[in-house]
Nucleic acid binder design. Structure first.
Lengths: 300, 300
DNA sequence: GTTCATCATAAGAACAGGTTATTGCTGTCA
DNA sequence: TGACAGCAATAACCTGTTCTTATGATGAAC
């Protein structure tokens, strides 16, 4: 036994409307016998007579009338599917779940969200802030759509685009302001305060100092850059800070900022997403918006 | 360009549910390639990607999710169509529009409706009371489904079944109670009060008296049997009354009832409907119910 | 590197659904 | 009343869709 078909319902609707096989068939752009057969088929499927064929007129039966009401709704719903597809084809709509690491989030997120809301109104933006490794896991699991992290990630299943590069600066107690800037070797001798395990920024800082991450260190790891700066201000040591964080984190704390001499430490921030994600093009545009948001226009 | 298909939506729903082409295909009892092709087809129709094909998992896109919700509703609505058909297959449901002539309605309608309500609960009964000719017109126009009239109607497009036969009795002023019952010839000499033009009962009475309807008569026609009896009670003449009306109409009026000698006048009441009406079987059952309602069981 | 899992593609087979031609019925009109 | 006209059902045939099985491609796991 075959199943109901949209065609049958559309033909049925036409016949209910025209009450005439020939005209209904014409309205459906098919021949009259084709319509007859399909209506008959539909009646057999439903095991009910839908039309009363009089000598000179075709009339809906009581059941046919009841059916016509529902069929109309169904067909309209189907039409709406196509409308829905057409509407969401052009612009990205619906939900965008974006992940971002903690050493970026506080400084870039406001600008990103502001700009995305402007360029993609109606987009439902969800933000997840956690460590790179977790973000990658959530990305591959499909729990988020994209993430802003430090590159490179080097996951073959993930697409990555660069957003910006930024230097790291040295943060030391305000009393050290005048002293010469240490080089990488000198830095190894100083008390370097770092984020706890898992933050990529920790690894980048260690890497700059030529210190292997596995090397045991005393338990002075902080859980945020804010804490790090506070610790420096308290004279507990020195630390590195990405440039974007400087303004926010040193605003109310007495510390001294110094740029390194070449080779300057730095990190590259980028956006990543599953390369299987069919919204790739949209995400690329999203990344452009984000880049625009965080790289202030040159005119200023 | 082809149109959307129910199959595609069902396949889509299955794949959205299983998130696995092979298992979804099995659930649909088709091969995996068939499912792949249909999903691809659906995506082309909607010009949107519905699933993100990862290496090890299939996942709905944002749009796919939005679609899945609507598709589910649509498919459930379609399933309900079949339920609806199945439910209305057995018993007559919905609306029954029944016509009945004025010389029957007051006497039989209460019993008919009572019995129909008992045997066909949930049936929405509409009643139309008017002359036979109008009923026939409305029947062929599809404005009513069946009618209770005096037979024969002799419309080839209408089905008719008998319900009962009943005699006509003579109604004359109470003062005439003892007088001999006139025969047809004597009746012609009396002042015979009749219903107005159009009532079949008028024609039947005239026919009994061998008077041609076209014959001019003074303007004493009444519009209801009640009025006729009142006129007889007032001494304006005599009239005929179908048996079923006797009890109701003479209850509070001083008139004398007399049966005719053979050949007694009578009429046959029947039910008629379009013979193209697919509910013919149901209507036959309805007629049985009606017959049962108006012919009191023999046991009493 | 090999194997496994999984989806896409290809080619042939089966079938649904279309067409035109024809039949059959009914009501209309001369 | 008999020929005709209108209309739906049926028949015969044809075509395009949509299955099936077989095979290819690709990424993940061992």
């Amino acid at each position: 036994m075959m199943n109901l078909t949209f065609k049958q319902l559309r033909y049925f609707e036409a016949l209910a409307h025209h009450a005439h096989f020939g005209r209904a068939a014409a309205a459906c752009s098919i021949s009259q016998p084709a319509l007859s057969v399909q209506i008959k088929e539909l009646e057999q499927q439903l095991n009910a007579i839908l039309f009363e064929r009089g000598a000179r007129q075709v009339r809906l039966t009581v059941f046919g009338e009841a059916l016509a009401l529902r069929v109309r709704d169904i067909l309209r719903s189907v039409d709406e599917l196509e409308d829905l597809a057409r509407a969401s084809r052009d612009r990205l709509v619906g939900r965008l779940r974006i992940g971002i690491i903690p050493t970026i989030a506080p400084y870039l997120l406001p600008a990103i969200i502001k700009e995305l809301s402007r360029t993609h109104p109606g987009l439902d933006i969800h933000v997840r802030e956690t460590l790179t490794q977790k973000l990658i896991q959530e990305l591959t699991d499909g729990r988020i759509d994209a993430a802003v992290v430090a590159l490179p990630v080097s996951e073959p299943s993930l697409n990555e685009v660069q957003l910006l590069s930024e230097k790291f600066v040295l943060v030391r107690p305000a009393t050290d302001a005048g002293k010469p800037v240490p080089d990488r070797a000198a830095l190894q001798e100083m008390k370097l305060l770092l984020l706890e395990e898992g933050h990529c920024f920790r690894d980048q800082a260690l890497s700059f100092c030529n210190i292997r991450s596995a090397q045991p260190r005393e338990g002075l790891d902080a859980s945020s850059l804010t804490t790090l700066v506070q610790m420096v201000g308290a004279g507990m040591g020195v630390t590195l800070l990405p440039e974007m964080a400087v303004e926010v984190e040193t605003r109310s704390t007495e510390v001294a900022i110094a740029s390194f001499k070449d080779p300057q430490p730095s990190r590259t921030i980028g956006m990543i997403w599953r390369n299987t994600n069919p919204l790739g093009r949209e995400l690329l545009r999203i990344s452009d918006v984000v880049r625009e948001a965080i790289n202030p226009p040159r005119s200023r």
